[in-house]
């Protein structure tokens, strides 16, 4: 039995999913706690931790830029890949539309963050 099999392009998305999932598991809870709970409520960290000059400085620093980019982009690629699979599991076929919406969101988010970070200068 020989069928003509088409190679799947999934490795690209699967690797981004895996890297993002690992990064989210290692850093996600603490990042959410700090940026969404601790700092807005004024807990544990100095008042000016996320002040404009500090954050701008972080985003202009080479390491900080990379950190922000990797977090946003990989979290996006991780989540849209899972959602793409879940949509299929709930009866929405894994067709071109579903693919475009899911991976398109991640791609757009990645490009926007790259653009903003680039424009801020070094």
């Amino acid at each position: 039995m020989t069928k003509n099999r088409k190679r799947s392009n999934a490795p690209v998305f699967w690797l981004l999913f895996g890297a993002g999932g690992m990064l989210a598991a290692l850093t996600g809870p603490m990042l959410i706690f700090i940026t969404g709970i601790a700092i807005p409520l004024g807990l544990l960290f100095p008042e000016d931790t996320m002040s404009y000059p500090k954050m701008l400085g972080f985003a202009q620093n080479f390491f900080g830029k990379g950190f922000i980019f990797v977090i946003i982009a990989l979290f996006l690629w991780h989540s849209v890949h899972r959602i793409f699979h879940s949509l299929h599991e709930f009866g929405i076929p894994a067709g071109p539309t579903s693919k475009l919406v899911c991976y398109g969101t991640a791609l757009a988010g990645t490009l926007v963050s790259a653009f903003v970070l680039f424009r801020m200068g070094f």
């Binding site: 099999r5 088409k6 190679r7 799947s8 999934a10």
Partner: peptide, 11 residues
């Protein structure tokens, strides 16, 4: 590998 990497394969 052709089968493993195909659209009906592991992914």
């Amino acid at each position: 590998m052709e089968l493993v990497a195909s659209e009906e394969g592991v992914f």
